[in-house]
Amino acid sequence: MSDGGGAEGDLFRLWLEGARAFADSNAAGSAAWQRAEALHKAWSRFAEAFAEAHAARHSEPGASPLDPAGWLRPAGQGGMADLWRWFEGPELADILREEREAIRSTREWIAFSAALEQFRAVVAEGWMRAFKAFVERLSAELAAARDEKRPDPDWAQMTALWREVADAEMARTHRSDAFLAAQRDLIEAQIAVRGTLRKRIDRLAGFLGLPTRAELDDLHATVHALRREVRALRAGGGGEQGPDHER
């Protein structure tokens, strides 16, 4: 059974145990193994100290380049955000505009996917807690039914129990700081990726002489303003604005 690190961790531990047994089989090998272990411990202490110092300087989650959560961050300072900016390069007037936009939309799509995964993870954790709570409640209910010599709950009762437990647990999840933050990040990421894509499509539409969304919105805004003016004029001239008794 894994005690951390998942299947890869188990494999690594098995490999280490095998290596240690091999080293223990002769004196020279054993000494070499001890030196290697000492070196490994020293390196681990250095890495931990470095990570702690970095975490102190980058208190926001994902802000440190050592934190994988920051590798896909779309904005901010530090981490992969700096590297992405380096990839995109400076904004130049006449060259590399399309390439820069392509890199930006790729970055934003990756960031959106990461935000979506984070959101899903928070929700999935809620469902897992709901499932655990349901199993506990159902087990207690079945045990009580046996003790009291009454029939087990039928499918309708079990469904009602599941609905009650799951909705209560999901309500807690939906009110949690983790959910609210994941929801905010997802909306931000979605706005960014849709905005960049729309800009690229609008440029293509302009190139082909097709109306862009911005142009249609301008038109609709103008029509809306004109209709208001017509209404106001009609009301001023005895039209049908407001009930008769107020005219």
Binding site: E240, Q241, G242, P243, D244, H245
Partner: peptide
Amino acid sequence: LGEILAAVAR
């Protein structure tokens, strides 16, 4: 709603 109330009154 203003125009609707006017229509109801009529």
